[in-house]
Amino acid sequence: QVATSTVRILGMTCQSCVKSIEDRISNLKGIISMKVSLEQGSATVKYVPSVVCLQQVCHQIGDMGFEASIAE
């Protein structure tokens, strides 16, 4: 089973930030795809909930120095 959710990301300033986040999160087990939008300050994450949760994704992004939260 696959889920798609949006994560809000604060602190991104350039495409390099976007690429860094996409590269790191895409390597997590259970992540199918991730598309980060600098303009919208968010990311669309396609993932397998039984393998990885959005809290883990937000935590990983937080470790990179950005502020991440699950969009309502």
Score class of each variant (00 low, 15 high):
1 Q>T: 08
1 Q>M: 05
1 Q>G: 08
2 V>D: 06
2 V>R: 00
2 V>F: 10
3 A>D: 06
4 T>Y: 09
4 T>S: 07
5 S>C: 15
6 T>I: 13
6 T>M: 13
6 T>S: 08
7 V>G: 00
8 R>C: 13
9 I>L: 02
9 I>K: 00
10 L>I: 11
10 L>Q: 11
10 L>Y: 13
11 G>V: 06
12 M>R: 01
14 C>V: 04
14 C>F: 02
15 Q>W: 08
16 S>H: 12
17 C>G: 04
18 V>S: 11
18 V>E: 05
19 K>Q: 11
20 S>K: 15
20 S>C: 07
21 I>K: 00
22 E>V: 09
23 D>N: 12
23 D>I: 10
24 R>W: 07
24 R>E: 12
24 R>T: 09
26 S>V: 09
27 N>C: 06
27 N>A: 12
29 K>T: 10
29 K>I: 13
29 K>S: 11
29 K>D: 14
29 K>E: 13
30 G>P: 04
32 I>F: 04
33 S>V: 05
33 S>D: 09
34 M>W: 03
34 M>R: 00
34 M>V: 15
35 K>L: 07
36 V>H: 00
36 V>T: 02
37 S>L: 07
38 L>K: 01
38 L>S: 02
39 E>C: 08
41 G>S: 13
41 G>C: 10
42 S>C: 13
42 S>L: 14
43 A>T: 02
44 T>E: 14
44 T>I: 14
46 K>L: 15
46 K>N: 11
48 V>A: 08
48 V>Q: 13
48 V>C: 12
48 V>I: 13
48 V>H: 15
49 P>M: 06
50 S>N: 07
50 S>A: 12
50 S>R: 05
51 V>F: 06
51 V>K: 07
52 V>D: 02
53 C>T: 14
53 C>L: 08
53 C>S: 14
54 L>G: 01
54 L>Q: 00
54 L>F: 03
54 L>Y: 02
55 Q>P: 06
55 Q>W: 12
56 Q>K: 12
56 Q>D: 13
57 V>A: 02
58 C>W: 06
58 C>D: 04
58 C>E: 09
59 H>E: 14
59 H>C: 08
60 Q>C: 05
60 Q>K: 12
61 I>C: 05
61 I>R: 01
61 I>F: 04
61 I>G: 03
62 G>R: 15
63 D>N: 12
63 D>Y: 09
63 D>P: 03
64 M>Q: 01
65 G>M: 05
66 F>C: 04
68 A>F: 06
68 A>C: 15
68 A>H: 03
68 A>M: 06
69 S>Q: 10
70 I>Q: 05
70 I>G: 04
70 I>H: 06
71 A>N: 11
72 E>W: 08
72 E>P: 11
72 E>Y: 12
